[in-house]
C-alpha cells in the first residue's frame, strides 16, 4: 500500500448525534485532496479525530512515514501524532498571540529536535548549535511564505492574511508528511484567494507534502484538488476528481436541494 493516510470506517458520536458515520478516506503521497460539504457535515470533526483531539468511537487511522513505516494513530495524544508527520491549521486562526512570528515557527521545530533541559546545562555548545539550526530553518520557511518583514512582530499584531500564512508556516516547521488545512481561504478576498491557490501548490512541490483541505470556495477547490471527498450529515456521499464530483447527482442534491 502506498497511501500516506488511510482512514477506514471512522465514526464519532457527540451524545446521541452521529457526527461521523463510517467514513473512509485515503491520501496518496503529494496529492492534494479536498474535503467539502455543507456546514455541519462533520469535516472539522474529521480533522479533530485525525489529529487526536477527539478519540473516535470506531475505525482506524493509519499513516505511513517517509521511512515507509506504517503506524496506527488512534489513541495517540496530539503531540505524538504531530511527531508522526501530521500538521494542521485551524478555521479560526490559532497562533500563539503573545509570541513573535519567529517564535511561533520555532515552536513548530521542537518536535524534530532533541535538546532536553539537562542538555542546556551540560552541553551548552551543542544546544546553541541546534538552536541556531532551528532559527535558520524557521527563517527559510518564513522567507518562502513571504513573512520575513515581520519576524519580530507579535503574532497578534499581524494582518489577517499574514496570520493565515504564519499558521501554515508553523505547521510546515513540524516537517509534516501530510498537511491538514481547515478553510484556509476563509475571510479572504478574491485576490488573496488566488495567491493562496498558488501558495498551496508551491508548498506541495517544495515540501513534497500531501495536503488535505476543507474549503468552501469552490473555485479554489476545483482548481487545486486532485481528488475531492464530499460529506453530508457525517457520511461520505461522493468521491472523485473535480469533474466527476461536479456531475455527481448526490452532490448536486446535497448542495442545491431537490
Amino acid at each position: 500500500m502506498t497511501a500516506i493516510l488511510k482512514v477506514t470506517g471512522l465514526s464519532m458520536n457527540f451524545g446521541g448525534l452521529r457526527a461521523l458515520d463510517d467514513v473512509d478516506l485515503r491520501v496518496e503521497p503529494r496529492e492534494i485532496v479536498a474535503l467539502i460539504g455543507p456546514n455541519g457535515a462533520g469535516k472539522t470533526t474529521f480533522f479533530n479525530c485525525l489529529t487526536g483531539i477527539y478519540p473516535p468511537v470506531s475505525g482506524t487511522i493509519f499513516m505511513r512515514a517517509s521511512s515507509g513505516k506504517q503506524s496506527r494513530l488512534n489513541g495517540l495524544p496530539p503531540n505524538k501524532i504531530t511527531a508522526k508527520g501530521m500538521a494542521r491549521t485551524f478555521q479560526n486562526i490559532r497562533l500563539f498571540p503573545e509570541m513573535t512570528v519567529l517564535e511561533n515557527v520555532m515552536i513548530g521545530c521542537h518536535c524534530r529536535t532533541s535538546a532536553g533541559i539537562l542538555g542546556a546545562v551540560f552541553r551548552p555548545r551543542a544546544v546553541r548549535a541546534e538552536e541556531q539550526r532551528i532559527v535558520d530553518s524557521s527563517y527559510k520557511i518564513l522567507t518562502r511564505l513571504g513573512l520575513t518583514d515581520v519576524v519580530n512582530d507579535l503574532a497578534r499584531n499581524l494582518p489577517y492574511g499574514a496570520q493565515r500564512r504564519l499558521e501554515i508556516a508553523r505547521a510546515l516547521a513540524t516537517e509534516p508528511a501530510l498537511l491538514l488545512l481547515d478553510e484556509p481561504a476563509a475571510g479572504m478576498n478574491p485576490r488573496e484567494t488566488a495567491e493562496l491557490n498558488q501558495l498551496i501548490g508551491k508548498i506541495r512541490d517544495i515540501y513534497e507534502v500531501a495536503i488535505l483541505l476543507i474549503e468552501h470556495d469552490m473555485k479554489l477547490v476545483m482548481s487545486l484538488s486532485d481528488r475531492i471527498y464530499v460529506m453530508e450529515y457525517g457520511r461520505r456521499i461522493a468521491v472523485g476528481t473535480p469533474v466527476e464530483v461536479k456531475k455527481n447527482p448526490a452532490v448536486i442534491k446535497a448542495y442545491l436541494g431537490e
Binding site: 496530539p78 503531540n79 504531530t82 494542521r88 490559532r94 515552536i107 518536535c111 524534530r112 508553523r170 513540524t174
Partner: peptide
Amino acid sequence: QMAMLVGI
C-alpha cells in the same frame, strides 16, 4: 491544545 498540536 495548540501546543500539543505543534508537537509539544
